[in-house]
């Protein structure tokens, strides 16, 4: 069995094409979409977004009302072990949320200011791109990055993919840490990943997300960024805002008003 180098190369090429067949490329293309300015991919009809007004939020130091509301609404267990924690919306200090250099000379007090973080419901969510079962997907009609807890296999690829640490895995049985589960929202079970769903179950009923509703300072503003007349767009048109890691091209939809 003799084979020339040329033949070998041809065969290798054919094998590669077989493996990465056209379907894959097309699918990758579809998943990656066009993020370039003026790109062909239309944004979803609606895109829910949130503006966190850091100044308003700072008026109430130590406040965790939004977090408590979310935890209660979604049966988020209080697991003491940090390694196994479940978090949908939680606080991080400013220098963690934003690039350290931006805050390096900030007053120590303001620097330790806690800022709420949550799933960014990205325009190009990496978690969705990598999910092998479609258990997480970007909803066409309103841009929410959804979770289907019935389909998740717990491979945690989405956790590796998320640049914001917004996903949690159920390392242990969450019900053991839920004193009094709220029957209106299912708990989760061992071995699935979870994250904020922008309260899709409330939004579909015309309500605001639980965290937004709970904020005493009205520091969280929820609305459709694709609607030029929405309140979020109004705020965005007149204030300076930051997003987390925009350089990664994920297109986060949580804005931080500075």
């Amino acid at each position: 069995m003799k084979i020339t180098r040329k033949e070998f190369l041809k065969l290798s090429g054919a094998g590669l094409v077989l493996v990465f067949g056209g379907r894959e490329l097309a699918a990758l293309d579809r998943a990656a979409g066009a993020t370039f300015p003026g790109g062909a991919k239309p944004r979803p009809r609606k895109q829910w977004a949130m503006i966190v007004d850091t100044a308003k939020c700072a008026k109430e130091p130590g406040c965790t009302r939004c977090i408590e509301a979310c935890d209660a609404a979604h049966n988020i267990p209080a697991i003491p072990d940090k390694a196994h924690e479940i978090q949908w919306i939680w606080n991080e200090p400013a220098d963690v949320v934003f690039d350290e250099s931006d805050v390096q000379y900030l007053d120590a007090a303001r620097r330790d200011e806690q800022i709420p973080v949550l799933c960014n419901h990205c325009d190009q969510p990496p978690c969705v791109r990598v999910c092998p079962t479609g258990a997480t997907w970007k909803r066409e009609e309103d841009g929410i990055v959804m979770m289907d807890w019935h389909r998740c296999i717990g491979c945690r690829y989405c956790m590796a993919a998320c640049p914001y640490g917004a996903r949690s895995f159920n390392w242990v049985d969450p019900r053991a840490y839920l004193a009094n589960p709220n029957p209106d929202f299912p708990t989760r079970t061992l071995g699935v990943v979870e994250k904020c769903t922008f309260c899709s179950e409330r939004v579909v009923a015309g309500k605001l997300p639980a965290c937004v509703e709970a904020c005493p300072e009205k520091a969280l503003l929820f609305g459709d960024v694709n609607d030029p007349h929405s309140e979020v767009r109004e705020v965005l048109s007149e204030s300076y805002v930051l997003r987390r890691k925009p350089e990664l091209g994920t297109g986060p939809n949580i804005y931080y008003r500075i």
Partner: peptide, 10 residues
């Protein structure tokens, strides 16, 4: 589920 709902972009 990986086979039942194959995701070609994954």
């Amino acid at each position: 589920n990986v086979i039942l709902y194959p995701q070609f972009h994954s």
